[in-house]
Amino acid sequence: MSLLEAKGISKHFGGVQALQNVSLTVEPASIVGLIGPNGAGKTTFFNVLTGVYVPDEGTLTFAGQPLPAGQPHRVARAGLVRTFQNIRVFPQMSVLENVMVGFHGRTHSGLLGAWFNGPAVRREEREIREGAQELLKWVGLQEMARRVASTLSYGAQRRLEIARALATGPRLLALDEPVAGMNGAERGHMAELILRIRAAGIALLVIEHDVRWIAQLCERITVLDHGQRLAEGTSAEIQANPQVIEAYLGHGSHG
């Protein structure tokens, strides 16, 4: 059974048809690439997937269950989490607190817990803290735990977003242009991180403009153009596809 199955997704904004009949599947613990020129609808697809937008048409199935449309927190709790193209860490919280927020959906202490602050609550809080520190180590930010998130470099903020997303305990992690604006060495580090995440049994759906970078990472790639699925196939197939080359050259490519 596929982990994620999106069928016939359409979404429009006023006169703009941002997505039209787009389908895509992600197998468990695989890496899938989503590419396409600017304005192709990639981010919109993520927004529909994660419940930020409600699709006009189409169905979304995750691990055999329909995904709740328009309810981001329930999508996240179902195991599908994302990062944002225009980085959205909680800017004035510390790096550690950012990741601790990610644990919210998996922890339970409520109002009375906060007030009485009993042993169970304190233990949970300690577990959250230790878990968050563990994740920061994982993405290489352990030295920065106490820093205010907005003071981090661009690349570090991207990794923080990933750590925060991992804290929710996802089965599918969706990354929106995780290496945008990064140099070669940083791209290498990000690829290594992505492979490590996959090795931990988490599937990834990655948006990226740089076809070569994504091709070395992914099993399968889907290409969007003008809101429609232009092609789908293995990395090699996509790189050889004349339509894809045309679409990229026609729009002026990034990579």
């Binding site: 981001p72 927190h73 989490v81 909680f90 800017p91 919280m93 927020v101 202490s109 949970e124 925060r164």
Partner: peptide
């Protein structure tokens, strides 16, 4: 409350509601 799991969630919502919801809040 301020220094609890709930207080932290409130702070996250205050700073970025969409990101907070997308993290399962």
């Amino acid at each position: 409350l301020e220094y609890s799991r709930i207080g932290r969630a409130w702070m996250a919502i205050r700073e970025d509601e969409i990101a907070a919801a997308s993290m399962g809040l």
